[in-house]
């Protein structure tokens, strides 16, 4: 017996699917920006010489890099409220988890980018009498950002895929909406195929962009 594929029923769920796509994209954008800001602050702080500053930050980064984001999500939703005594909405917990998870990776990308700039550039700027902030802004960051762009785009791609874990907390992202439609229609094949296609349509341009940038910057 061959399975009869029929995607037409999905049309009546287009509203739900659209909401799911918006949640997925929205969460990606918000947590990528928040994660980049937090990661940038961590990266700059880690350049300090004081170990009181750098060691806790290193610990933070390693904790978030060495545990699965699904575990972080669940822990922040169920355990953190007990530790701090504040109840968290699923979306809030998801925002915190994805932001901090992203931040731990962004921080390493940014720090690596800054550290990759030749010390001679610092010498040259200092010798002109530039102060630290000006040197960072005028000389180091413009060069470092260029090198950071490809890994940053890759991290955003991962970040978007990680939003599929939000479904565990009943945040209505693409995957969660898919589960909803599946339980109403009993047609997982069509539903999850469509979900996969939508992820692909969103991400493929992004990875293409990353490749293009890599090639252009390599020249």
């Amino acid at each position: 017996m061959t399975y009869e594929w029929d995607f037409s029923f999905l049309l009546q769920y287009k509203g739900l699917i659209a909401i799911g796509a918006l949640y997925t994209i929205g969460f990606t954008i918000v947590t990528a920006i928040a994660g980049f800001v937090v990661g940038g602050l961590i990266a700059v702080a880690r350049l300090a010489d004081a170990r009181v500053v750098t060691l806790p930050l290193l610990a933070f980064i390693e904790i978030f890099r060495c545990t699965p984001v699904l575990v972080q999500l669940v822990w922040i939703y169920y355990a953190l409220p007990i530790v701090i005594g504040v109840e968290l909405k699923p979306a809030t917990a998801a925002f915190i988890a994805l932001t901090l998870y992203g931040a731990s990776f962004f921080a390493e990308i940014i720090r690596g980018g800054i550290a990759s700039i030749d010390t001679g550039q610092w010498d040259a700027g200092r010798a002109l009498g530039m102060r630290r902030a000006a040197l960072m802004r005028r000389v180091v960051l413009p060069q470092a950002l260029k090198r950071m762009i490809p890994p940053l785009v890759n991290q955003v791609v991962l970040q978007l895929k990680n939003t599929s874990l939000l479904s565990v907390l009943a945040v209505p992202d693409l995957l969660y909406q898919g589960q909803l439609i599946t339980s109403a229609t009993y047609k997982p094949l069509e539903v999850y195929t469509m979900i996969a296609v939508i992820y692909f349509i969103i991400l493929f341009p992004l990875t293409t962009l990353a490749h293009g940038l890599e090639r252009r910057l390599a020249r």
Binding site: D118, G120, Q121, D123, A124, R126, A127, L128, G129, M130, R131, V139
Partner: peptide, 17 residues
């Protein structure tokens, strides 16, 4: 920075931006 701005320096590896 103020001190260094009165002294010009040229490096072995140029260090142009």
């Amino acid at each position: 920075a103020a001190f260094r701005s009165t002294v010009g320096m040229v490096f072995q590896n140029f260090n142009l931006f």
